[in-house]
Simulated scan of single mutants.
Amino acid sequence: MTVDPLDAWAAETGRLVEALRDVPEPDWARPSPCPPWTAAALLGHVVAGVVRVPGMLDAPAPERAEIDAAGYFRADERFSGGTDAERIDSGRRAAAEAGGPELVRRLATAREDAIGRCRREPPGRVVRTRHGDAMLLTDFLVTRVLEAGIHGLDLADALGREPWLTPPAARLLVGLYGGAALGWAPLALLRVATGRAEPTPQQAADLQRHGVRRLTLGR
């Protein structure tokens, strides 16, 4: 069954908001699995990514798409030390200025705005990412589903919550990694494929045998 990336992004970000609404203020200072960020700083990074989407839609559309969702996660300057330092600082500033509960409220507002804007775009809309890639909006949204999925997992781990992955996001991300033939639980695949869990020797062999994609990730 084909999954609409926008529906998957809406589902995953909506679940993220609901999971974080009742987190007590002190818990936001917990370390995240993405050091040196705290849970609040990691959420600040997530919010920044959502807020950026309407600005992309306001910009002129490139003539044609040049990169797909998997190609977006390639090893170049977007994952360099300097770019990563900017991400770290941005997340820390957001946490210091707003705090976790306020960032949850900002995420709720930002996702509604971004999703509404995306739904009004015509089929075949091409956008330019902050890294300069010309992509179909649908392909770019696949990258946003991965961002929401992996950082939702990170926040669940940091805050001691039960991890989740909504069914639309799970189907989309298993497809992105080419992992359907493995038959693994989507959360297990996501943890191993993103380096959040070490594969067992058997799992490593399965990944190689089935040609599961290796995507370059920053934070």
Rank of each mutant, 00 (worst) to 15 (best):
R130Y: 08
T138I: 03
R125E: 05
H131M: 09
A95F: 00
L136G: 14
L155Q: 09
I115P: 07
D139R: 06
L141I: 04
R93T: 13
A114V: 00
A96Y: 08
R117F: 06
H151G: 05
E121G: 15
G149R: 08
A134P: 10
R120H: 15
T143M: 03
R117P: 07
E147K: 02
D139E: 13
R120Q: 15
A134D: 04
A156W: 00
L103D: 06
G116P: 04
L136F: 13
L107Y: 06
G124P: 11
R105S: 13
A110Y: 01
A94E: 00
L103R: 02
T129Q: 02
A95N: 11
R144F: 05
L136M: 15
E97M: 09
T109C: 07
P101A: 02
G124S: 08
L103M: 06
D139A: 09
G149S: 15
L153Y: 11
A134S: 12
R93P: 05
V127C: 09
A96H: 13
C118I: 12
A96N: 11
G149Y: 04
V145P: 09
G100W: 03
E121V: 13
I150W: 14
R105K: 10
V127N: 09
P101E: 06
E147V: 05
V104F: 03
R117H: 12
G132Y: 05
V126N: 10
A98Q: 08
G152H: 01
R117I: 03
L107I: 01
V142S: 11
R120C: 12
G124Q: 07
E112N: 11
L146A: 14
H131I: 04
G132P: 06
R125T: 14
A94K: 01
D133H: 10
A98C: 08
P101R: 04
R106T: 01
F140T: 10
T143G: 11
R119W: 09
